Structures are given as C-alpha cells and as structure tokens.
Computed example of a mutant assay.
Amino acid sequence: MAFRSAVITFPGSNCDRDMAVALEQVSGTPAIRVWHGDADLPDGLDFIALPGGFSYGDYLRSGAMAARSPIMQAVIEAAGRGVPVLGVCNGFQVLTEAGLLPGALMRNASQNFVCRTVPLKVENNRSLFTSGYKAGQTVHIPVAHHDGNYFADEATLDRLEGEGRVAFRYAEPVNGSVRDIAGVLNEAGNVLGMMPHPERAIEPAHGGSDGRALFESALKGLVEA
C-alpha cells in the first residue's frame, strides 16, 4: 500500500522541503506538496504535515494568518475524519490558532531565538506518533524558534495531563513553556503539535536520528490499522 502524505506550504514556510524529504525517506513514497491557497486536499491522504517556518512573517501572531488560509478548512475536516496531522514549530502554532489543539505559543521567556538540539522526555508512547518510543525515554531533537513558549490555563493543562495528551516534555529549560510541555495531542490522538523538529533528526548525518521513530510510528500505525 502506497503511503500518501501531504506537506502544506505557506508563504514563509522554510522547513517544507525538510519535511517532504523526511516523509519520503521513511515511507519510500514522495510527499505531495500542497499550496496554502488551494481549497482542497488530494484524495486518499494518509498523513498531513504542517511544517516549520515563519508563515506570513509571523505577522499579528505566529500562525494566526496561516490558520485562515483556504487549505486549513480542508485540513480541519480531514483531522475530524481521523487523518493524522502533524504540526511542527510554526505548524504547531498554526494548529493552535486553527483550534485543532488547545493553548497558545508565546514569545520565548528569554526573548531570544533558541536554536539547538534539546533533550525531550517521551511522556506518552501510546499514540500513533510515539509508539516507536519507550515511555520516559529521553530523545534529542533540534529546536529553532522564537515563539515556542507553550501556554494554557491550569484547567486545560490538568485535562491534558490527565488524558495523557502531553506527548513530549522538555527535559531541561528551553523556552519557558508551562510544565515544560514540548508537544501535545488532540483528544482523538490523531493530531500532534510539537515545537522540536523531528524531520531534522532522521539520519546520523543530521547529528542524530531520534526523530525517525516518530514518522515510523505513524507509518506502522496506519499500515496496521
């Protein structure tokens, strides 16, 4: 069965090619590139990725304008049907702005751009995206963001924790995110938003391959479904 994935490109995306290359390397099938101004997604998609970058130059709020792009209505509908959706960095910001994930990404507490490889703790290894990891495992994934400070009110945070929807947590201070949250899942478990870049850690030439298991987990889960 061919794995049909799509990578959405917004004006200002700069990690869309990285994401497409990662998906092809792991699945063996080229990702379909979709422009944000399209109204429809290709039929029969197994996976949708919203990549990192600086959509619309982070004007107003990071991801706010991209979340209103024509293609996002189709992404929201696909997510509602259970299609896996991964948002990385700016893609995570877009998912929160579009209402697919709770919370918001604010300016880093240091007010500085953070660009380095950071340790992450795998909090939930029972999701479509994380089954290839061990619970509590520490992995190392690059970050590159200025607005990665995750925030949500206490009630929302308690609900995320109680429902096992915190996928990854920073194992050291990175950007001021509440409870060190680095990645969250939606209630159905088919939408993941995370600030670190797994697509930049899929082979040793990248300096590490800890991100590869995320894509392999999704592929395996879809094949077995």
Rank of each mutant, 00 (worst) to 15 (best):
Gly80Glu: 14
Ala98Asn: 03
Gly132Asp: 12
Gln111Ile: 05
Glu203Pro: 07
Ala188Arg: 15
Ala201Val: 13
Ser209Leu: 13
Ala152Lys: 04
Gly103Gln: 06
Arg107Trp: 05
Glu187Val: 15
Phe129Glu: 08
Ala104Thr: 14
Pro173Ser: 07
Phe151Ala: 11
Leu105Phe: 03
Gly189Phe: 08
Tyr170Gly: 01
Leu192Arg: 04
Val94Gly: 00
His197Pro: 08
Val143Met: 02
Val94His: 00
Asn124Gln: 09
Phe92Ala: 06
Pro198Arg: 06
Gly148His: 11
Ser110His: 03
Ala205His: 10
Tyr170Trp: 01
Ser209Asn: 14
Ala98Arg: 01
Pro198Trp: 05
Gly91Tyr: 03
Val178Thr: 14
Lys134Gln: 11
Val118Pro: 06
Glu163Met: 07
Phe168Ala: 12
Gly91Ile: 05
Glu163Val: 04
Asp210Trp: 03
Gln137Gly: 00
Asn125Leu: 03
His206Asp: 14
Val174Glu: 01
His140Asp: 09
Asp180His: 06
His206Tyr: 11
Leu95Glu: 08
Lys134Met: 09
Leu100Val: 13
Asp153Pro: 14
Asp153Thr: 14
Val191Leu: 02
Ala109Phe: 13
Gln111Asn: 07
Ile181Leu: 03
Glu187His: 11
Ala167Glu: 11
Ser177Gln: 11
Ser209Gly: 14
Gly91Lys: 02
Asn190His: 15
Thr130Tyr: 08
Ala98Glu: 04
Leu128Asn: 04
Asn108Val: 10
Thr156Pro: 13
Val139Pro: 04
Ile202His: 01
Gly87Ile: 08
Arg169Glu: 01
Gly80Gln: 12
Gly193Thr: 09
Val139Tyr: 02
Thr138Ala: 01
His206Phe: 14
Gly193Arg: 09
Thr156Leu: 13
Val178Asp: 06
His197Gly: 08
Pro198Met: 05
Ala167Phe: 11
Asn190Ala: 12
Lys121Cys: 00
Leu128Met: 11
Ser127Lys: 12
Gly87Val: 08
Arg179Lys: 15
Ala205Gly: 10
